[in-house]
Amino acid sequence: MDSTTGTRHTPWLSDTEDRVWRSFLTLSRSMERAVDRQLQRDSKLSGSEYEVLVPLSESDSGELPSRDLLRELGWERSRLSHMLSRMERRDMICRSPSPTDARGLVVGITEHGREVIARAAPAHLEMVRAAFMDRLSEEEQTALVSIADKVLPRLRSMDLA
């Protein structure tokens, strides 16, 4: 079968497009693995735990409705629920009923969670800078933001993000 879907023809990627796509995937996956390894090594946190702690620690109140956290992270509900249970057992977050949504929860960062992210952030940012940011020119950084600003809304409109 060729590259058709039903009666619609889907063109293969050109050699250049294929190289761009595969390079992007390799970079994305490699950075994610590097972040996970660095966080685990230096602070005994998973990348996912860090990802949850960041928006909570940046929130003025230290709390977010679980639906807002879910939207910010772009995760499936079951993944967030599992992660929050694990983090709650480790006393990094707490959950309480939402005062405005009878079915919702509010997720808050605990004092221990604040200490954990405060210890983890410097080494994490040092790795991000050394492995990624310091390797890109200002023009490349601007181009990367521009690419994300074009692709992410399209993924959302396709209900894929």
Rank of each mutant, 00 (worst) to 15 (best):
A161S: 12
E17M: 09
E63N: 04
L69T: 07
V35F: 07
R90D: 15
F132Y: 10
S14V: 10
L64H: 01
W12H: 10
E126N: 05
G47F: 07
D2C: 01
H82S: 14
S96H: 05
I93K: 00
I147Q: 11
L53K: 05
P153R: 04
K150D: 15
R89T: 11
A120L: 03
L155D: 14
F132N: 01
S28P: 00
A123Y: 06
A34F: 08
L80E: 02
S43F: 03
L84W: 05
R154G: 09
T5I: 15
S3W: 13
R103C: 04
R90Y: 06
P122Y: 01
S48K: 14
D15A: 10
P99F: 02
L25P: 00
S61C: 04
R86C: 01
T5P: 00
E115S: 12
S81K: 12
S61E: 12
G6M: 04
R135D: 06
R37F: 07
R79C: 01
V145Q: 13
L125G: 12
V35I: 11
L13F: 08
R37K: 09
V35D: 09
S85I: 03
S28C: 08
R119Q: 10
L160N: 04
D101K: 07
V151K: 05
M92H: 04
T7G: 09
A102L: 08
G113W: 00
E32D: 13
T4M: 08
I93Q: 01
R41T: 13
I147C: 09
E63Q: 12
E51C: 07
I109N: 07
D18E: 15
M83Q: 15
R37C: 06
R154F: 11
L84Y: 06
A123M: 10
T16F: 07
L69R: 02
P99S: 11
